[in-house]
């Protein structure tokens, strides 16, 4: 049985512009010790997916449907007090915006020790010691003094690292890391990713890593799921997906990654157009207005995510699941 099994998860927000289908029926499984990279355009539903797994969708305006099984338990059916025992304990989350998820009125030390005292029954002094160790592990200098500081006294990247240290304190079984390294320079980022990998090795933690840095995904994820407009449009093992992306959106995404060897006299490449308005979704494929391969039939029915003939890969563009691409992949998969 997988550690995490998500079936048909959907989240909609009832707003005065209409119903926003932020997550529109996604399913995936995760095994212990696995890292899933979750990538996709801004507003495609990555953060909402993570929040939904923890039962943190504000309601109203949010409505969540579907099932989430974790460690033999249907957590989507748990009550709020039961969920609170899971959050920050067996499942922890590193939120995308550290400034809004850290309490500005409490010292870093207070916020970190609270978690340990609440979930692990540690004494205050033991909790302080562990918190300082945690801050040292994420590369904060003088961790003992940092415990006495308030969030606004830290740099953006330091706040992000405090969030990471908090997320790792309870040695979770599942870690939801939402853009954990966006505010970090690349050397500290490498150090943090290494730390997460070590926690994973030690405790068999499964990690959902949301990031728009495809270099980070390339270096850490076992599998990648690509989201567009509330759905997973492609999923597969990292190596194969990077080498041979099937879905036109994934292809566009990979080709707009800025590189250190790109030609600076040219414009940076981006996918033309803008993502669809989730409150007014056109029928058919959500990527159709921006897709270079669009056909007439794309605009009538929204394509499903289907296995693409290569083990472990699936893709929601019916026009691309051609047999020759499948051959190319199985050729790669051979040693």
């Amino acid at each position: 049985m997988p550690l995490l099994s998500v079936k048909n998860l959907a989240v909609r927000f009832e707003t005065h512009h209409g119903t926003v289908r932020a997550v529109d029926g996604i399913s995936f499984d995760m095994e212990e010790g696995e890292t899933l990279g979750l990538v996709g355009e801004s507003g495609s539903g990555k953060s909402v997916t993570n929040l939904a797994l923890l039962g943190l969708i504000p309601s109203p305006p949010g409505v969540m449907t579907g099932q989430v099984h974790f460690d033999g338990q249907e957590i989507s059916a748990l009550s709020e007090p039961e969920l609170r025992k899971v959050r920050g304990n067996r499942i922890s989350m590193i939120f995308q915006d550290p400034m809004t998820s850290l309490n500005p009125l409490l010292t870093i030390g207070r916020q970190m020790t609270e978690v340990l005292e609440l979930h692990k029954g540690k004494s205050h002094s033991e909790a302080l010691r562990l918190a300082a160790v945690g801050l040292g592990e994420v590369g904060l200098s003088e961790p003992e003094s940092r415990l006495a500081q308030y969030p606004h006294e830290l740099s953006g990247g330091m706040r992000q690292r405090v969030m990471i240290a908090m997320g790792l304190l309870c040695e979770p079984r599942l870690l939801l890391a939402d853009e954990p390294t966006t505010a970090l320079d690349v050397t500290i980022q490498a150090q943090i990713l290494e730390l997460m990998a070590e926690v994973q090795r030690r405790h068999g933690t499964a990690i959902i890593l949301v990031t728009h840095d495809l270099g980070v995904v390339a270096g850490t994820a076992d599998r990648v799921a690509v989201m567009y407009a509330g759905r997973i449009v492609e999923e597969g093992p990292t190596h194969q997906l990077f080498k041979n992306p099937h879905h036109p959106y994934t292809q566009g995404l990979l080709s707009s990654v800025p590189r250190l060897d790109s030609d600076t006299s040219q414009k940076m490449s981006s996918i033309p157009g803008t993502p669809p308005d989730l409150a007014e979704m056109p029928p058919g494929c959500a990527f159709a207005p921006r897709c270079p391969n669009v056909q007439v039939e794309c605009k009538s029915e929204r394509p499903e995510l289907l296995a693409s003939g290569v083990p472990g890969r699936s893709n929601a563009c019916p026009l691309y699941a051609s047999p020759d691409s499948a051959e190319a992949d199985s050729a790669e998969a051979r040693p």
């Binding site: 355009e41 801004s42 966006t182 505010a183 728009h212 566009g252 995404l253 940076m268 490449s269 981006s270």
Partner: peptide, 16 residues
């Protein structure tokens, strides 16, 4: 850090 929080495609648009 004007583009740190943005995905690559939008980031490219802002840099351009």
């Amino acid at each position: 850090e004007p583009v740190s929080a943005l995905d690559v495609s939008i980031q490219a648009q802002i840099v351009n």
